[in-house]
Simulated assay, not measured.
Amino acid sequence: MNLDTVLAAGRAAAKARMRDTVRLYSQGPDVFDRTSGNTVPGPQTTLYEGMGRVKSVAQASGEDTQAAEREVRLLEYEVSLPWDAPLAQGSRVLPGMRLKVTASPDARMVGIVLWVTSSQFGDQATAWRVMTEDRS
Rank of each mutant, 00 (worst) to 15 (best):
V110D: 02
T21G: 02
V72Q: 07
S118E: 15
M51N: 10
P41I: 15
W83I: 07
G96Q: 06
E76D: 12
V57L: 15
S119Y: 10
L47Q: 03
L24Y: 00
Q120M: 14
S61W: 09
M18Y: 02
Q44T: 14
S136L: 12
A67T: 09
T65H: 06
G90Y: 05
T65R: 09
D33F: 07
R53P: 04
R70A: 12
L94S: 09
S61I: 14
L99Y: 01
G28K: 03
T65N: 07
Q44K: 11
T126E: 12
R92M: 13
R53K: 13
V72F: 05
G37D: 14
S36N: 11
D30L: 02
R19D: 11
A13G: 04
V57C: 10
T45K: 08
W83H: 05
D134I: 06
F121E: 14
P95Q: 03
R70K: 12
A60I: 06
S136W: 09
R108F: 10
T46H: 06
R17Y: 05
D30H: 02
A107Y: 10
T35M: 12
F32E: 14
R70P: 04
L47G: 02
M1C: 08
R98G: 03
L3V: 15
G96E: 06
Q27D: 07
A14C: 05
G90W: 04
A107E: 15
N2V: 05
D64W: 10
R135N: 09
R73C: 12
R19S: 10
G28R: 04
D123H: 10
R53E: 10
V40A: 06
D134E: 11
A88L: 14
T45G: 08
A13R: 04
T39W: 10
Q120P: 04
A16W: 03
T35S: 13
D4F: 05
V116Y: 00
R73W: 07
M1L: 12
R23P: 01
T21H: 07
A85C: 14
P95A: 06
G52R: 03
Q89R: 03
D134G: 05
A60N: 13
G52V: 09
P105W: 05
V101D: 02
G62W: 00
L114K: 06
E63M: 13
G52N: 08
D33G: 11
L87S: 00
E76H: 02
L87G: 01
G10A: 07
E133M: 11
P105A: 11
M109G: 08
Q66R: 08
G50T: 09
Y48T: 07
Q66T: 13
D123K: 11
E71I: 12
L74F: 02
E76I: 02
R53I: 09
A67Y: 11
M18V: 02
D106L: 12
L74Y: 00
S91V: 03
L74M: 07
G62H: 02
P43Y: 06
G10W: 00
Q66P: 11
A60Y: 03
E133W: 04
V110G: 01
V110K: 00
R53N: 11
A8P: 00
T132I: 11
A13L: 09
V116D: 02
P29A: 14
V54K: 03
V130E: 06
E71T: 15
E71W: 08
A107R: 13
R135K: 09
V93Q: 01
G122Y: 08
V101E: 03
L75Q: 12
